[in-house]
Amino acid sequence: MGRLPGRCGWRRTFASLCALGLLVGAGAGTAPGAAATVTVAGRATEPGPYSPPAEPTGEPEPTSPPPTVEPPVETSTPTAPPTTPTPGTTTGGPVPSSGPPAATVAPPRPTYSPSSRPPAPTLAPPVSAGVKVTTDDVTLPAGYWTAASTVATLNVTVTNAGSASAGVRLAYTLPAGLTDAGTDGCATAGKGEYRCGRWTTAPGAQFSTRLRIRVDGDAWRNMPLAGSVRVTATGAAGTASDDEGFAVLFPPGPPAPGITMSAGEVTFDSNGASEGFLVRLGNTGRADASGRVDVLLPAGVTVATPPPGCVAVAATRTRCRLGTIRSGRTEEVRLPVTATPQALRSAPLSGAVIGRLDPRHGADRRMLSASGSPRR
C-alpha cells in the first residue's frame, strides 16, 4: 500500500503509511520535509497510447427458425396369407399331432416414429452496460526539487465491461499545483476539471492512455495531494460509470544534509486491519540529534494503540519522539494503523510523514515524504 524509501504509498493493503496513498497536507508554510505515501492496491503495467477501435457495423442479424418436417406415416402389420387346408384333414377343429404343439409367435406390434420437433429457439443474453477504469499514481523524480515545474505521466486504463458497444467519455480532476500539460483530445472545464472527447468501444475492449500532468515546484507545500479519474459509457444498453483516485508521490525532500527518511507500505485486510506503518529516520550528520516524526493520516485511518513515545496531537496527526539518534544511526517506529470500511472504499488513500532532527548545536533538519494506499 505504499512506498518505501523516499516515497510512501497508501493502498488498501496498508503495509506502511507511505504505501497507503495517504495525502496529508504539509501546509504552505511547512518547512522542507520528507513525505510518505501509502498504497491500498496493486498497479498495472504501463499501457501504451490508445487508438480508438473502428465503429461497429451493428448488432448481428437474428438467426432464422430451424426447419420443420411432417411426421412420418404410421405403418400397419402385414396380413398373413390364407392357409390352404391339407388334403385328408378337416377344417373344423385342430389337427392332431404326435409331437409337441408348435410354439405360438405373437404378431409384431405396429411401430411408430416420433415426429421431429424443431429445437427450442436460442435466446440472446440480456444486453448490459458496464465500464471500468484503473489508474496509476503520479510519481515525481528526484529532480523535482531543483526544477520550477515537472511534467509527469498519469497512466489510465479503461475497459468496456458491458455486453454492447458504447460511447465512452473520460474526465479527471487535478489538485492545487497540478495542471494538464497538453494531453491530446482533452481540455479544461475550469476549477481543476478536465474533459476528453468521446469514442466508441466494442464489448470487452480495453485501452490505455497517458495524461500529461505538470506539477509546480511549490506544490509539495500542499501535501498530501490527490486527484481522480472518471469514465462514463453510454449506449443502447444504458449508461454506466466508474471512477478511481490517484496520489501524487513526491521524492523525499526537499534535500537536506544530515538527515534521511523512508516510509514503508501499508496493506489493509478486508476488516481494515494492517501489520502497521513503518517509518525510519536517519542521522547522517556529524553530531547526535533528537529525532521526531509526524505522521499525517487520511480520513478514516487511525492509530489503534500508539506505541511508546507516540501521541495523537490531532484527529489525523500522530507525533512520535524517537529520542537521541546518534551520528550515523537510524531509528524506526511502527504505527498500528486501521481503516474504516468507508476509507477502504475510497482507496487509494494518501498521507504524509514529516521527519525532524534537532542537534544540540546548529539548526534543525527536516524532511517530508508523501504516501499512497492500495487500490480497490
Rank of each mutant, 00 (worst) to 15 (best):
M1E: 10
G2L: 09
R3K: 13
P5T: 13
W10C: 07
R12D: 11
T13C: 13
C18K: 06
A19E: 03
L23G: 12
V24R: 11
G29S: 07
G33S: 14
G33I: 05
A36V: 12
V40R: 10
P49S: 14
P53K: 13
A54M: 02
E55A: 15
P60R: 03
P66S: 07
P67D: 12
V69N: 12
P71E: 05
P72Q: 06
P72K: 06
T79G: 07
A80K: 14
P82R: 05
P82W: 04
P85Y: 07
P87N: 03
P100F: 09
A103D: 13
V105T: 14
P108K: 01
R117Q: 12
L123M: 13
V127K: 14
V127Q: 09
S128N: 11
V131R: 04
V133L: 01
V138T: 01
A148E: 12
S149G: 12
T153D: 12
L154E: 00
N155W: 11
T157N: 06
N160R: 09
G162K: 04
A166P: 02
V168T: 08
A171K: 11
D180M: 00
D184V: 15
E193H: 12
R195G: 13
G197W: 09
R198L: 13
T201Q: 15
A202G: 15
G204T: 03
T209W: 01
R210V: 08
R214M: 00
V215I: 02
V215L: 00
R221E: 00
M223E: 15
V229F: 02
A233G: 06
A233Q: 04
T234V: 14
G235Y: 05
P257S: 14
M261H: 10
A263Q: 06
E265D: 13
V266G: 10
T267S: 10
F268D: 03
F268A: 12
S270K: 11
N271R: 14
S274V: 01
F277L: 14
F277Q: 14
L281N: 05
L281C: 05
L281S: 07
N283M: 02
G285R: 03
S290L: 08
S290Y: 11
G291L: 02
D294E: 15
V295P: 05
A299E: 05
P306I: 06
G309A: 10
V311R: 10
A314L: 08
T318G: 01
T324N: 08
S327W: 02
E331C: 07
E331V: 13
E332H: 13
V333E: 03
R334K: 10
T340E: 04
P341M: 06
A343P: 07
R345W: 07
P348V: 00
P348D: 01
L349T: 03
S350R: 06
A352C: 05
A352R: 01
V353H: 01
V353R: 01
I354N: 15
P359I: 02
R365F: 04
R366M: 10
R366Y: 09
S373M: 03
S373L: 07
P374Q: 12
